[in-house]
Design a protein around this nucleic acid. Structure first.
Lengths: 158, 158
DNA sequence: TTGTTTAAAAGAATATAATTCTTTTACGAG
DNA sequence: CTCGTAAAAGAATTATATTCTTTTAAACAA
């Protein structure tokens, strides 16, 4: 069970991170190989967990979710059991797409994707502020987004 | 050219946001239809831009990129031409996966995915702080991430 | 050097799914 | 009603994924 990625693997991952509908044949052609080794490498990358899943990326704005907001949160009480409960609640909100425990000026950083400012306010009032032990809440509203990808840079790990 | 999504469309989008390798047949079965209308709806969703692309989602940590960091930045000079240059530079850094212009306590919020604390420091020293007119820089290091998805909630827009 | 082993790649064959095409159904307008 | 339209169903075809067998290349021991 080899555990490292070689050049070809990272090239495959780069391609699939950009477009996972590429055929094995077209990837093979690009990398100067035949379909079988490409196919087997992809299956291996999936099986060993380097590739977690394949997903469709939607156009948030086109769909009507025009606003991205980051929310920094500090909590007043920090008992372990409460933190777990807090995180669980937060993760269940569908408008929350990310929840990170962070070091720095906040305890948690959330990322939300919502329709508009109203939907954002509704979230704050009807969901977030109902959670107990909430300390400071600071919002960063995305006015524009020049880059937003989940394509990670593999050149660093080769 | 109809421009709204119906229930079936959002169900398809939900499925494809979770797993874009689902066959049209399996989606059809789940929704109690045949393959052709599903196929045509998907093609329409792609063509009209609701679906931007299909990508592989990798396991950052497994691949060796173990650290996610958010960086809040304020700039000292705000001339339009400089802002554009700044953003262009930032977007070219491969470790930067998101760059948002924000309102609130910062001008920009970045999200980075890097190997470790060292790689993060290297970024700060050899890339970020070389940019002129940089004001305050505040980092939020993700200690743990309980939720991280780009699956957006379509129930709000129906 | 030569023979042997192993892993990866190539090539061919098959199975599965995507895609296209034709027919049928459901529904609204006149 | 019945005509026209859009969506869905079903069948046929094409393209791709997947499997299997053969070949090549590299590593190593004799």
């Amino acid at each position: 069970m080899s555990n490292t990625l070689d050049k070809i693997d990272t090239q495959i991952l780069d391609i699939l991170q950009t477009d996972s509908n590429r055929t094995t044949k077209s990837i093979a052609t690009e990398l100067g190989m035949t379909t079988s080794p490409i196919f087997e490498r992809i299956k291996k990358l999936e099986k060993e967990g380097y590739i977690k899943k394949y997903v469709a990326v939607l156009d948030n704005k086109k769909i009507g979710l025009k606003l991205t907001v980051f929310i920094g949160i500090t909590l007043q009480g920090h008992t372990r059991s409460y933190l777990e409960k807090f995180v669980k609640e937060i993760n269940n909100f569908p408008e929350v797409v990310e929840c990170h425990r962070v070091s720095g000026n906040f305890d948690y950083l959330l990322k939300l994707v919502v329709e508009d400012i109203e939907a954002y306010e509704t979230f704050i009032i009807t969901k977030l502020t109902l959670l107990p032990y909430l300390g400071n809440v600071q919002s960063l509203i995305a006015l524009s987004t020049s880059k937003e990808t989940n394509k990670i840079d593999l050149s660093a790990v080769l």
